[in-house]
Design a protein around this nucleic acid. Sequence first.
DNA 1: TTGAAAGCGCTAACAC
DNA 2: GTGTTAGCGCTTTCAA
Lengths: 346, 346
Amino acid sequence: MISYKRVFLQECEKFMQKQEVTIYDVAREAKVSMATVSRVVNGNNNVRKETREKVLAVIDRLHYQPNAVAQGLASKRTTTVGLIVPDLTNMHFAELSKGIDDIATMYKYNILLSSVGNTLLNEDQVIQNLLNKQVDGVIYMSNLMNEKAQEIFNRTNTPVVLAGTADANQEFSSVTIDYKAAEKEALGLLLKNGKKNLALVVGDGKAYVNKDNRFVAYKDFMEEHNLKNVHIYEDAKTYEDGYELFKQIKADNVDGIIATRDVTAAGIVNAAADAGVKIPEDLEIISAASTNVAKIVRPQLTTVQQPLYDIGAVAMRMLTKLMNDEELDDSHVILPYTLKKSRSTK
Amino acid sequence: MISYKRVFLQECEKFMQKQEVTIYDVAREAKVSMATVSRVVNGNNNVRKETREKVLAVIDRLHYQPNAVAQGLASKRTTTVGLIVPDLTNMHFAELSKGIDDIATMYKYNILLSSVGNTLLNEDQVIQNLLNKQVDGVIYMSNLMNEKAQEIFNRTNTPVVLAGTADANQEFSSVTIDYKAAEKEALGLLLKNGKKNLALVVGDGKAYVNKDNRFVAYKDFMEEHNLKNVHIYEDAKTYEDGYELFKQIKADNVDGIIATRDVTAAGIVNAAADAGVKIPEDLEIISAASTNVAKIVRPQLTTVQQPLYDIGAVAMRMLTKLMNDEELDDSHVILPYTLKKSRSTK
DNA sequence: TTGAAAGCGCTAACAC
DNA sequence: GTGTTAGCGCTTTCAA
């Protein structure tokens, strides 16, 4: 019965649209079983050389390509990993993604992308959707996981690695830098340069790196050095936000700034220039990120150099191990950063 | 027999790891057939209200989530589209991707990402891999499709839309701007401002937008206006490339530049400033792209504003129609651009 | 409105 | 080294 259908389809194909060649067709043409074709396709060694060659010839002639969806269903592995990212147009995430992508490619994984910046879908819906697609693993780079999302991750066996972020309880594997130490070192530089009225400019105040790290480090530092004027500016996400914020900064007599995004820092720098405020004489500024923008703006920004590409790459490498049921040497990798001095500080 | 296995698994689940609830389990618990559960899950109206509610209650209780891989195999639709992009850290592609992503989300498609910047895999291998995963459609935004890739696309029924690029023969649906007109308008501005020694600075000279559009428009323009000194600089991709290139530009006495990337333009601008060359008095420059960088660099860049987000969004919308077997009103959409004058030209 | 059953294209025991 | 066969979890006729 099936063979009738096959024959019919074959006849159709001659006149109609492009065929879908299946493993079944290859087996028939090569006069072997499906299992043997499967073995050849998957590089299994238990195939006689001549058989292999015969099968490969047919595969070539018929332009056979395995259906990865069927493979996925049968083998329970999709060779696909989910990537959860807030916004690809933010260079921070683009750089992380590149590291992830390169290692994923190396290990023959595809990437299923999910943005969560969008308000159309909640984060937990996005994650559930990804898991329903049977991804073998997930890399999470968003700012803060909500409770529902955590619950979902806990209910599944799919391994998860956080890249460039972490959860407060360290329940998930993660790759980060020491954000607190970086923050303190940067503040230390400003203080050493004689600045006393130090401010913190961040994008999302609720993000783990800010709330649980930079804010803490900043407050510690201020207390340690007996500095009373605490200035934390939140929601400064764009160049324009930075440019606008400068008025406030000036009104507050701030003379030293750590900005978490360098587009924001660039906005502040340009606004200062336009207002005749001299950098670094009257105002010093350090960016906690470092993309192209940091070297394009004049004066060039002193930055905390995060190894974003490496963070992504290491996270993906860790994920490949987890997907392979290997043990991790370290579930919470902390990569080194460097404070790169440039013209926006003395 | 099956039921034995089920019972065994259920017993296991109580002690062991997290379960995988299937449509079969839901059907049994709700005392209906798999078909009915399937209908409920897929919002089919042919289900009595009470039955639906009963099933939904069980789904909720069991935390049932459909296996999208199995759905894909059975229905031959994966609700996934492939995205082929050279480099996500290039803002041009990041912006395009955002438009694509938003519309994809709106239509409930996931995005399977494939970078082709990587030399590990050829473009055609990447594309074949995407198709093997049974994506319902593909958005292609790379620079130039090689022949093998075209062949693969032609052999498949999977619809393809090119975003921000096109093929010379217009065989594929595409969304672009009128690159030639934009180029000529920009050159016209430089000429009007008294610049005579006009140069073109591009990244990839083999890219369709350059080879078949900007180069052609440039050469036309030069001929039309009887300008003899043709200067085309290729492979200027980064800020540093731009900065380095300035020496050559100066040596060639160029006084007007169109640069296709604004990081490159920024490099040229900063190099000019460092060399004491005045912009726009001695050298005018227009960027054919416009990202944040164009407004951060001083003097701000005059740019050709491409509606990148819209190009991506329209391309994805077109793809949804093609995947739905709808007719397209127009297979080659051309979106408007604007020449936005700023401080890098008079 | 519901159910039974035949696939979707492949993998992986298991048998030979 | 190769074939047989029973699934993977779902959709989709077709019949009732």
